[in-house]
Design a protein around this nucleic acid. Sequence first.
DNA 1: GAAATTTGTAAAATATACTTGACAAAAAGA
DNA 2: TCTTTTTGTCAAGTATATTTTACAAATTTC
Lengths: 67, 67
Amino acid sequence: MKNLRLKSARAAKDLSQEQLADLCKVSRQTISAIEKGDYNPTINLCIAICKVLGKTLDELFWIEEEA
Amino acid sequence: MKNLRLKSARAAKDLSQEQLADLCKVSRQTISAIEKGDYNPTINLCIAICKVLGKTLDELFWIEEEA
DNA sequence: GAAATTTGTAAAATATACTTGACAAAAAGA
DNA sequence: TCTTTTTGTCAAGTATATTTTACAAATTTC
């Protein structure tokens, strides 16, 4: 499932995937894969992304419904 | 760094590490390692733990200060 | 509409999350 | 004290997160 909240938060800071990736010290493909979904990043990376984008874990990564 | 919030939330539900592990479909050692700290679980596992314990990501896994 | 930037995606390699099995120490219950 | 349960930890293996390189499609900018 796509993570549109992340895509939106990144857009709000006017950052490209590559810029966000650099700030999180991770590759561009990793950011792309997370936004694309079907991906299971580590909590430390999620926290790093949240801090760069000024959001919390719940705001960007919490999922209400999960099969 | 130890995750005492997780340990506390588990105690509040009166669950052993092994019981929590079973409910999260993960090994006991993995739960032990997460509570012990120095560990970097995936976001999906964190979400599974949160749901079992009735907590949110921010409550159990958010970190204010990170070197 | 050409050039530059951004994004999607794929394959192979590497790093690391997680498992399994096992044993000892600590804690809890009798 | 004795027994049972819980927890810490280690070593070797498996699964998967992440990297690197690369190319094409899409978007933006001039």
